[in-house]
Simulated assay, not measured.
Amino acid sequence: MPADPGRDGATWPGVLAAIGAVWILSALMSFVPWLHAHGLYLRDAVRTGNEWWRLVTAMWVHLDWRHWLADSCAAAGLLLLAGRAARARESLLVLAVCGIVVQVALLRMPAIGWYGGLSGALHGLALWGALSLLREPGLLRAIGVLLSLGVIVKVWLEQSWLAPVVFDPSWGFGVVRAAHAAGAVAGLACWLLQDWWRGRRARAPH
């Protein structure tokens, strides 16, 4: 991982700080009862109670320690991988943006009354990070191709447009597949916007 902060990739301290921030924030929102109760996405509370902050906080709230640990480990892996091609603050920004987009998308789905977790945002970070790796040479580009295909195939196989929520007995709660699809679309949009901005800056006269 680059040590020079002027390069596109993240530094080790930056990535570790980003991972620590995600782990600490999500742990607080998941295991402190007051934060959990006021952070979870509740459709009625947002629409009729004007509790709009839940669109920002819901991604950090998890339902139990297994849910939190799975999402936290996935976030750490994706932040490390994305750090090969992008700075840590960019990865965190994409994660946050994708999480908010997921919550806004869920507002249009009456079947989903409540939601918590990073999985939707992580699908966005995964696709954005994978596409960013396509600019890198050798093995990193190959990883980017495989990860991009993996996210796309997973979203396609889940077919969330047919069943936005599917109960998973191993977790003991419904998996909101629609959040995965919304997150992936948000991640793609972030990458397209960033790529357009890079091209615009490259064409601008110095």
Rank of each mutant, 00 (worst) to 15 (best):
A70V: 15
A70D: 10
A70G: 10
D71E: 14
S72W: 04
S72G: 11
C73Y: 06
C73M: 14
A75M: 13
A75R: 01
A76Q: 08
G77V: 05
G77L: 13
G77P: 07
L78Q: 03
L79A: 08
L81R: 07
A82I: 12
A82S: 11
A82D: 04
R84V: 04
R84S: 13
R84E: 10
R84C: 14
A85R: 11
A86S: 15
A86P: 09
R87Q: 15
R87Y: 06
A88Y: 03
R89P: 00
R89G: 04
R89A: 13
E90V: 14
E90T: 14
S91Q: 15
S91R: 01
L92R: 09
V94D: 14
V94H: 09
A96G: 14
A96N: 10
V97Y: 11
V97D: 04
C98L: 08
C98K: 05
G99Q: 04
V101P: 04
V101W: 04
V101C: 15
V101D: 12
V102H: 00
V102C: 09
Q103L: 04
A105I: 09
A105M: 13
L106W: 00
L106T: 01
L106P: 03
L106E: 01
L107C: 08
R108S: 12
R108D: 06
R108I: 02
M109S: 02
M109I: 12
M109E: 10
M109D: 06
M109L: 14
P110T: 08
A111H: 05
A111R: 00
I112D: 04
I112H: 01
G113C: 07
G113D: 00
W114T: 09
W114G: 09
Y115G: 01
Y115Q: 05
Y115W: 13
G116H: 01
G116C: 03
G116F: 02
G117H: 00
L118W: 00
L118Q: 10
L118T: 02
S119A: 08
S119W: 14
S119P: 00
S119K: 00
S119H: 01
G120F: 05
G120I: 08
A121K: 05
L122S: 05
L122Y: 10
L122C: 08
H123F: 15
H123C: 11
H123A: 13
H123E: 06
H123Q: 14
G124H: 03
G124P: 07
L125A: 15
L127N: 03
W128L: 08
W128T: 06
G129D: 07
G129K: 09
G129Y: 10
A130E: 08
L131I: 07
S132D: 10
L134R: 07
E136H: 06
P137Q: 11
P137S: 06
P137W: 06
G138K: 02
G138I: 07
L140I: 05
L140G: 02
L140A: 15
L140T: 03
L140E: 11
R141F: 05
R141I: 12
R141C: 10
